[in-house]
Simulated scan of single mutants.
Amino acid sequence: MNNYFGCNFKQLINSYRVKYAKSLLDGDRCLVKDLFKESGFVSKSAFYTAFHKRMGITPLKYLATKSDGGMNL
């Protein structure tokens, strides 16, 4: 798995979870406070860490840039 995807299993799963969370945010289909549960994370801190690592910003900043129309991600 490491050779094929370039990451371990946990990182791969988290990348899919973050991608799903991003789609929820893009579609305004979930409250931010419930986002970590909806995207499969056990804790809010694990979600924020994974989101920031993958996207480079926090979920709230992502929403703010999306609202401003300045998405450069």
Rank of each mutant, 00 (worst) to 15 (best):
D28Q: 06
Y16S: 01
R54W: 01
N8F: 05
R17A: 05
F51E: 00
K44L: 09
L24F: 04
G56N: 01
G69A: 10
M1R: 14
L12R: 09
K19N: 14
N8T: 11
K22W: 09
S43V: 03
H52Y: 00
N2C: 08
K66M: 05
K22L: 13
L35Y: 00
G70Y: 15
R54K: 06
R54S: 01
K10C: 07
K53M: 00
T49P: 02
M71I: 11
R54G: 04
L24V: 07
K10L: 06
I57E: 09
K44R: 10
D68V: 07
L12M: 10
M55C: 05
Y4C: 10
T58E: 01
F51V: 00
K37I: 08
T65V: 08
L25V: 07
Y48V: 06
A50H: 02
M71F: 15
L24H: 08
I57Q: 04
F9W: 13
F36N: 06
T58G: 01
N3W: 13
G69L: 07
N2L: 14
R29G: 03
R54Y: 02
P59W: 02
A50D: 03
Q11P: 11
L24T: 04
S67K: 01
F36H: 11
S39Y: 03
S23H: 15
A46F: 06
F5H: 06
D28G: 02
P59V: 05
G40C: 01
L25Y: 09
I13F: 10
V42D: 06
A21Q: 11
S43F: 01
G56A: 03
